[in-house]
């Protein structure tokens, strides 16, 4: 159990004593929020999932590539 306590202290003390690291973590979290919450949800839907039913993806892609005339 001592090694678990050591790992805990490594991270706990490390995070507590951060200076520049706090700014960097803030930047990381803001960036992840923008990427996953704003961009992914509102601007980057899965095009195929939105335009076809589950299991019909292959047919959809085939028709996207070659349109019957």
């Amino acid at each position: 159990m001592k090694w678990l306590r050591n790992i805990w202290h490594l991270y706990y003390d490390g995070f507590c004593s951060m200076t520049l690291g706090r700014t960097l973590w803030a930047v990381i979290f803001i960036k992840l929020f923008i990427i996953f919450v704003i961009l992914k949800i509102f601007f980057f839907p899965n095009y195929i999932k939105e335009h076809t039913e589950e299991g019909k993806e292959a047919e959809f892609v085939f028709r996207e590539l070659t349109i019957d005339n």
Partner: peptide, 28 residues
Amino acid sequence: GINFAMGIATGLILEFEFGTNWSNYSYL
């Protein structure tokens, strides 16, 4: 560390673009 923190996840956006803008390619 500064450069590492700034670069984290910037490449993930490329994968989003695959699914939205390049769906035929992405599926293939």
